[in-house]
Design a protein around this nucleic acid. Structure first.
Lengths: 136, 136
DNA sequence: ACCTTTAGGACCCGTTTTGTCCTTTATATC
DNA sequence: GATATAAAGGACAAAACGGGTCCTAAAGGT
């Protein structure tokens, strides 16, 4: 249960790689893919997504590539995960709309809410900068 | 991310129904399925699983059916969820074996470990007895 | 014997995951 | 302006997974 998909894994690896680049240095998707051992075309989709959300900036043409959209210290793990996996929702019931009409009477509800807020809180408190730091 | 599957949802509904029965009273799978609005054959598989794990006891033949394997106060939500969904593992890396060889160098690892232990802790602390209590 | 009820295996189908491939668009350089 | 480079975007596809169904077997009661 609760497994991160490969896409999520790749996304994290990719953005950490970017965060480790010298400031101002551009990285090609081909380079990132090779370094992180992720299929290039698949990683490209992930980064297109990142770009749309402003997590990274992309530049086309010669000398182009990807850079972080803001300092790694201001990108949280939560943002990265949710960018590719969608919101952290342990149970459909917690989604809005008509997904669940038992909201009131169901005792399980508050449990999932707790799980959700705990996990979000943990992922929110971790920045890509921390993750990118070299371990010695 | 992290969504409980329908199977997990059904499992919880089913066992809560059992927990609400009068002590010693047997419930038929057909009855549980109808009451909880779960496809009967599907629910049957789930309860077969429960039975193997001792969460419920099953009895065949006329007058047979299902009962809780132990008091609802000693069955945790974690057990029920893991019975049908498998262990709570936010990232394949956390599985044993050769799933991940980055264990040492990877900063993300400890984060997933925290997520895992937090979620397990929450689900562990909730019993089926609590969930079965009528809300007023 | 016969009926009831769970156990277990085989199968099925739609969706999601995990990609690939090809074309288009933007940009820099010659 | 032509050309090379790189990302953007869409179409497609195999494999895994989720969510079931169906049929037969086994166990137990009458």
């Amino acid at each position: 249960m609760m497994e991160l998909t490969r896409k999520g894994e790749y996304a994290i690896r990719g953005i950490i790689y970017l965060a480790r680049q010298a400031p101002g240095k551009m990285a090609l998707i081909s380079e990132i893919a090779e370094a992180t051992e992720v299929p290039q075309t698949f990683l490209a989709k992930i980064f297109q997504n990142f770009a749309k959300l402003g997590l990274v900036n992309s530049y086309r043409g010669t000398g182009g590539g990807f850079m972080l959209g803001r300092p790694a210290s201001r990108i949280t793990l939560r943002e990265v995960v949710e960018a590719v996996e969608g919101p952290i929702i342990p149970n459909r019931c917690l989604m809005g709309g008509s997904a669940c009409d038992f909201d009131r009477q169901c005792n399980v509800h508050p449990v999932w809410r707790r799980v959700q807020s705990e996990v979000v809180h943990i992922l929110e408190s971790v920045t890509i900068e921390e993750l990118a730091r070299e371990t010695k």
